[in-house]
Amino acid sequence: MQFISTVFLDGLVYASYLFIVSLGLTITFGVMKILNVAHGSFYAWGAYLASISIIYLGDNEYNSFLYYFAIFLSAIIVGIFFGFIIEKFILRKMYGEDIHLIVLATFGIFWILEDLILIVFGVDPLMPYYPAMELGGIEVVGVYQGVYSLTLAALAAIVAFICWYFLNKTKWGKLLQSVIFDREVSVSMGINVKNVYLVTFIIGGMLGALGGAYVAPTISVSPGFAIDVVVMSFAVVVIGGMGSVPGALIGSLIVGMLRAFAVHQAPVLELFIIYAVMAIVLIIKPQGLFAPPKPRKI
């Protein structure tokens, strides 16, 4: 029983931040058809900026509100700043090019941003643990768990709700869905696809950065830590179906739980299990579990 709840809680926490990150990735892919490898950079930059600001604020209990403010602000700044630059000056010039070339371009951007981190923040790991310390931990179904980690799950739920509401209940959401379904038709209907792309990319970036920023207080932020997350969120997005929001949710739950299970039960198989499941899902359902529909081409 204790084992099950440990796995469940760990898996939930892990799934939560994976969901936030993957949601950004899947939205970008769904709308722009770009697999953004540089998504990991948003994550890393979000984490670094949040860490720096939290450390700057210092360990002070009067600051707790400011911590969260700093986390969200970091995510927003990173998303807007890098999202704007990358979309406006690099990706925008490449639409219509071969899809693989665009993936590689984002790969190049990823490399550049990784090294920029080294230059700006140095190589020493940062540990902005104050917010997590402050909230302490509680016992949930017999397992000790940090409260901060649990708020992560709440955050993921809120993000999921906002996203669902936005896509299904607002005019903007419908607009976005039409762009996802068929770009050319949307252009001819008078939708400014360029702006939609820019905003989407920024929002996707913000979500990636938010994942990193929010998770920063629970880990040690060090160079190169983003790469695992990118590959993992690829797995999530592929399992769930690329460009599908419910897919990202289910996918991150699957990957999160699997990883928690593997870590506690068979650490040897951690990586293996996740990718084996990804391979199996692709073999059975090539488009992922919740593939968005495609327009007919002939």
């Binding site: 693989h100 993936v103 592929v238 951690e270 299990i273 990718y275 692709l282 488009q287």
Partner: peptide
């Protein structure tokens, strides 16, 4: 036999999954 049914991004993703499975096995 499996991969030939896939194209583009899905092909890449499945290849990635296979190679990560191999990596996971070899590393352990």
């Amino acid at each position: 036999f499996i991969l030939r049914r896939y194209r583009e991004i899905f092909f890449a993703m499945l290849s990635l999954a296979f190679s990560m499975v191999l990596y996971g096995l070899l590393a352990k």
